Deep mutational scan, measured.
Amino acid sequence: DKPVLAIQVLGTVKWFNVRNGYGFINRNDTKEDVFVHQTAIKRNNPRKFLRSVGDGETVEFDVVEGEKGAEATNVTGPGGVPVKGSRYAPNR
């Protein structure tokens, strides 16, 4: 398990590439950019086929120490709701 650095952090999605399945979230508290992989998205938009977060979307997440620095995990919308997802992700 990766060491946990912070829990229930709010941030804004800087960018997310649906095809490659990753992007970055900017933390509201430290203004640090945190890597996010599609496997870290815990509550996906049920209408979306692929797990994703949308550019500019506000999300809540935990921060863990990854191999290359801070990574987001347990990604949801604020308060644990499903994320909205990327407009580029296909609908079901």
Results as ranks from 00 to 15, higher is better:
residue 1 D to E: 15
residue 1 D to V: 11
residue 5 L to S: 11
residue 11 G to A: 06
residue 14 K to N: 11
residue 16 F to I: 09
residue 17 N to I: 11
residue 17 N to Y: 14
residue 18 V to F: 08
residue 18 V to G: 04
residue 19 R to S: 10
residue 21 G to D: 12
residue 21 G to S: 10
residue 22 Y to C: 15
residue 25 I to T: 13
residue 26 N to T: 10
residue 30 T to I: 13
residue 30 T to S: 13
residue 31 K to W: 06
residue 33 D to G: 11
residue 36 V to A: 13
residue 37 H to R: 09
residue 44 N to M: 10
residue 44 N to I: 08
residue 44 N to A: 11
residue 45 N to I: 00
residue 45 N to H: 05
residue 45 N to G: 07
residue 45 N to P: 03
residue 45 N to V: 01
residue 46 P to S: 08
residue 46 P to E: 08
residue 46 P to W: 08
residue 46 P to Q: 08
residue 46 P to N: 09
residue 47 R to E: 14
residue 47 R to D: 15
residue 48 K to W: 03
residue 48 K to R: 07
residue 48 K to H: 14
residue 48 K to M: 06
residue 48 K to D: 05
residue 49 F to Y: 15
residue 49 F to N: 12
residue 49 F to A: 15
residue 49 F to E: 12
residue 51 R to L: 05
residue 51 R to M: 07
residue 51 R to N: 11
residue 52 S to N: 05
residue 52 S to M: 02
residue 52 S to T: 09
residue 53 V to I: 14
residue 53 V to P: 02
residue 53 V to C: 09
residue 53 V to H: 04
residue 54 G to R: 12
residue 54 G to W: 01
residue 54 G to L: 08
residue 54 G to N: 09
residue 55 D to Y: 09
residue 55 D to G: 14
residue 55 D to I: 12
residue 55 D to R: 14
residue 56 G to A: 05
residue 56 G to H: 06
residue 56 G to S: 06
residue 56 G to M: 05
residue 56 G to L: 03
residue 56 G to W: 01
residue 57 E to F: 00
residue 57 E to A: 01
residue 57 E to Y: 00
residue 57 E to V: 01
residue 57 E to P: 00
residue 58 T to L: 14
residue 58 T to Y: 06
residue 59 V to R: 00
residue 60 E to T: 10
residue 60 E to A: 09
residue 60 E to W: 07
residue 61 F to Y: 03
residue 61 F to P: 01
residue 61 F to K: 03
residue 62 D to L: 01
residue 62 D to K: 00
residue 62 D to F: 00
residue 62 D to C: 06
residue 64 V to G: 02
residue 64 V to Y: 05
residue 64 V to C: 09
residue 65 E to C: 13
residue 65 E to V: 14
residue 65 E to N: 12
residue 66 G to C: 08
residue 66 G to F: 00
residue 66 G to V: 03
residue 66 G to K: 03
residue 67 E to H: 13
residue 67 E to D: 13
residue 67 E to R: 15
residue 67 E to W: 12
residue 68 K to S: 08
residue 68 K to I: 07
residue 68 K to T: 05
residue 68 K to Y: 09
residue 68 K to V: 07
residue 68 K to A: 08
residue 69 G to W: 04
residue 69 G to K: 04
residue 69 G to L: 06
residue 69 G to S: 04
residue 70 A to Q: 15
residue 71 E to S: 08
residue 71 E to A: 09
residue 72 A to Q: 02
residue 72 A to N: 03
residue 72 A to H: 00
residue 72 A to M: 04
residue 73 T to I: 15
residue 73 T to L: 14
residue 74 N to G: 03
residue 74 N to T: 01
residue 75 V to W: 00
residue 75 V to L: 05
residue 75 V to N: 02
residue 76 T to V: 07
residue 76 T to A: 05
residue 76 T to G: 06
residue 77 G to P: 02
residue 77 G to H: 05
residue 77 G to M: 04
residue 77 G to N: 02
residue 77 G to R: 05
residue 77 G to K: 05
residue 78 P to D: 00
residue 78 P to H: 04
residue 78 P to C: 04
residue 79 G to M: 09
residue 79 G to P: 00
residue 79 G to W: 06
residue 79 G to T: 06
residue 80 G to K: 06
residue 80 G to A: 05
residue 80 G to P: 03
residue 82 P to T: 08
residue 82 P to E: 08
residue 83 V to K: 02
residue 83 V to T: 08
residue 83 V to N: 01
residue 83 V to H: 00
residue 84 K to Q: 13
residue 84 K to T: 09
residue 84 K to Y: 08
residue 84 K to F: 08
residue 84 K to S: 08
residue 84 K to N: 10
residue 84 K to M: 12
residue 86 S to M: 03
residue 86 S to W: 04
residue 86 S to D: 04
residue 87 R to K: 14
residue 87 R to M: 12
residue 87 R to H: 12
residue 88 Y to S: 06
residue 88 Y to W: 13
residue 88 Y to Q: 07
residue 88 Y to I: 05
residue 88 Y to L: 07
residue 89 A to R: 08
residue 89 A to S: 10
residue 89 A to Q: 07
residue 90 P to W: 11
residue 90 P to H: 11
residue 90 P to M: 10
residue 90 P to T: 10
residue 91 N to T: 13
residue 91 N to L: 12
residue 91 N to I: 11
residue 92 R to S: 11
residue 92 R to Y: 10
residue 92 R to C: 12
